[in-house]
Write a protein that binds this DNA or RNA. Sequence first.
RNA 1: GGGCUCAUAGCUCAGUUGGCAGAGCGCGUCGCUGAUAACGACGAGGUCCCAGGUUCAAGUCCUGGUGGGCCCA
Length: 1078
Amino acid sequence: MPFNKIEPKADFPALEREMLAMWEKTGAFDKLREINRGKPKWSFLDGPITANNPMGVHHAWGRTYKDVYQRYFASLGRELRYQNGFDCQGLWVEVEVEKEHGFEDKKEIEKFGIGKFVTECKDRASKFAAIQTEQSKRLGYWMDWDNSYYTMSDENNYGIWAFLKKCFEKGLVYKGNDTMPWCPRCGTGISQMEMNEGYREVAHMSAFVKLPIRERPGENLIVWTTTPWTLSSNVAAAVREDMTYVKIKQGDQFYYVGKANFENARTHPVQQLDLKTLPNLMSLQSIFKNNGSFEVVEELKGAALVGLTYDGPFDMLDGAKEAAVAHCVIAWKEVTEGEGTGIVHIAPGCGAEDHQLGKDLGLPVVAPLLEDGSFRAEFGFLAGRKVDGVADEILADMKKRGVLFAKEKYFHRYPHCWRCKDELVFRLVDEWFISMSWRDQIVESARGAKWIPEWGLDREVDWLHNMGDWMISKKRYWGLALPIWDCKACGHFEVIGDRDELKARAISGWDEFEGRSPHRPWIDGVKIRCASCGDESVSRVKEVGNPWLDASIVPFSTMGYFSDRENWEKWFPADFVVEALPGQFRNWFYALLTVSTMMEGRAPFKLLKGHALVVDDVGQPMHKSDGNAIWFDEAAEQFGVDVMRWLYASASPERNVLFGPKHCDETRRDVILPWWNIYSFFSNLARVDGFDPAEHTATLDQRSLLDNWILSDLHTLVRTAHEAYSSFDVAKVCSEAQRFIDVLSTWYVRRSRRRFYGGEWSTDKRAAYATMYEVLTTLNRLMAPIIPFLSENIYQNLVVRQDDAAPKSVHHVPFPQANEGLIDESLSQRVAASIRIVSLGRSARKNSKLKVRQPLARFVVDPGSDTEREAVEQFEDHLREELNVKEVTIASEQVLKEFDIPSVTISVEPNMKTVGPKFGRQASSARELIAQLDGVKVEEAFARGETVGVDGVEATLSPEDVLLTRFYGDDWAGASDGATTVRLDKRLTPELRNEGLARDVVRNVQSLRKQAGLDIADRIVLGLVGSGLEEMLGQCGAYIQNETLAAELHTAAIADALATVEVKIADQPVSIGLKKMA
RNA sequence: GGGCUCAUAGCUCAGUUGGCAGAGCGCGUCGCUGAUAACGACGAGGUCCCAGGUUCAAGUCCUGGUGGGCCCA
């Protein structure tokens, strides 16, 4: 079948959709799996994507990597699992469902019904998994989409039970309490990892509060807080023993504060907000001044205050009773001289550090808040009030009672719920934990895998060492049902390891549960008998599990660990995992390693590769709320996914990728379009010429030097691509391929173009076609993992249409092997040299304002190396044509004389690479002295085999120590680069001048032909009117007629011209007119 | 507060064992005109963040800063 006619302006998104449909119709993916079935395995483990929203462009980076490497290993004949994962359970899904219903808090969920709510969460995850599946297909991501894993599956959930049971058996599961960040709206604790993501800068009304010292009437401590509600739970006041404090007298009262704190200028600790618009903070000193005159009466060490007792601000509330008797000044080394008063309000029930300190010192804990962030009944006027609305009232109340010293609006970073954006509070809660006492084992697992980049391992180990015990519970609804049955009667708890165990242990509720997924609320009805006290109403704890558990059991649950161990052993551990780096050290990677170490004592992957983030055009993180996020679908249809994939594949993995229209355009222009242009150039010619790849072949010795060169470079590229792909460095494949495309376009095709024109199938034409065909099909296969659509489209035309026996998809073709026999390093170097010399020639022309259109008599090359000399000899024709000269000559003494090339002046520059070591300490001064040498004399001396001395220094110069730069006479245009010098003869004979004029005329006529809408083959009558054209026409008339298909050439205006134009040629006005031949 | 990391052209980034500061984009000039809304060439553009130090020689090595980013506390 003939080759397709290729439109130069391609609609890539449309082309991609066509290929998608074709794959779908022909079952191309299934066919690939069939081809590789039973072959050596390559195990990829997919980190599940959160199935809660449609994909953004940022998801496409990681997925591009996943698909690229899968396609590469498939092309090597490896069997793959192709299993995609969806992360389904967790708060983020709940939040969206809540939003849909407009729920404000957990009460509304319970009113709505946990069962209905959980079902909707499930449905939402399924819905977006389906949407993401379609989007992933559009990305060209080849996966076994009917076999994706879902973290909400029974297999996955029961798998986690098994893990937790193991932890339990080792005594690592415990119920703990801690003061932790809590989201009052979501009614759940926020883990350390989650909190890191939620900091925002906000203003709070802060309070300076008086604490009257019981032992010393009239004397007060002053503490400061940005969270006045915590004052209700104050237990102690902390000072640093070695810090200096001042005692200040104001009116009839005395106050204690830190000396440095007292004197410090204060600032808001914010970075993002516009600092100029922030109100200034008053120093503590100024705050005193505001209250009237004062005087510092004494300086003392903090130690002098320790042990004093004081009256708390809310001792009258029932809830604070226990603390009231305990109020005392304690020593704490964390107290600072920076912000605050130097005396720190300690509320162990309202702050993590406070809680730790309280534990250490055995202080009572006052926990004032309920789950929903409201005050407990024992807190008097605050009872039932939500914590986020009481600051003003608390301040007003303290003011009324005279214990408020001052208040002030204060801007700072404060943690917020990463999902609902509400402010977090610190709250004392019971949660379930896995002890990390065995962290060293996990570290060992981490070390057992290879990490790219290498520092990833260090980062992970660092995290593992610092990580506290893993809080695995969440007081929510949609998630793993923690398999912990906790006996209310005796406090004994146990972990159930799987469904069968639960069935065996169940004494009630099983029948209702049977047939349900192990989720709330259905699982909650199953009761067991307490193994310790025999109580028969032991229920599961209410909590659900941390979602990172869900994602981390997958190396086991998805590979058949619990159902088909033999199969599991074939795929575990995974050969490859690739995910975005930031965050995952403390999330998925951490959890994966923890679970897998518990289950099998080793990492679940052999190699982990990480990459950075996708940010917008100007480097800012993409956020839906900032309006700079780009949805995947939009980008896919605007730029095409091949462009997107190339952009991602070519990016440096450790650096954030800037994604935006500008960068997509750049990628398209730099890579996709040049590649397409080369391809369409070939296909269109092949179509017209009736090229048949089976028939029009060429042996190596029938091919031209250029052919052998491009084949050499091609196979070097194949070799490099293999190395790069298999070391997971696709960016290198991209950069090398791009370099190849560039040289293919700008040299091979450019230089070979004419070989494709003309009718007969000469040996040379066959060679050109055969070579081009091999280059295109090979390069196409090479890039197929990166740009699967475009390469498929090209393959269908270049191969499938020509050969019925060929594999039906480019992705079924084995990856090409480098033919080392075709690689000729020295030929590549010679071609590179010829390209360099042409570039020098162009530079010389440019410097002397001699346009390429003007033919010149002679190009003289003084080669800088043997390679260049050979290049000039071998590629003389190319040099002549590219530079439009009549002759190319290699410089020699005889040549210089013969063509009257004047002696040149030469400047001398030191080559510091050799001069440095040789001159040592004197190198600097030598450098200047050398530059002043007479270059001609230096060159002559070298020519005689002598070295050259430099005044004032001892060593002498050899040829390799200096660079000599030549200057050329009036008749010559020259350029030099290193040791290479080229010269162009600037002298124009009348014949040369005429030829130049003729080419000017031709160019203008061609442009006029195009304007007039003539077909390439139309013949014309041409009229030229202008002074001084006769001689030129006499010499070059035939040439002009030939080039412009002018059957007639007149030196008079054409009477009924189709088009005319007035131009200037060699500064002379010329009128050109033409009409179509009848 | 501690650790890691980055800082090079207007932009995005290379720069290996220390040895004449680079690429692409953008910009400017020009060319080509049967790859044509395409393509090519040439050019301009630098306080290599700052200050010290080592060295004949520092973008590169060392020390200390400044400024960004990430992580931890």
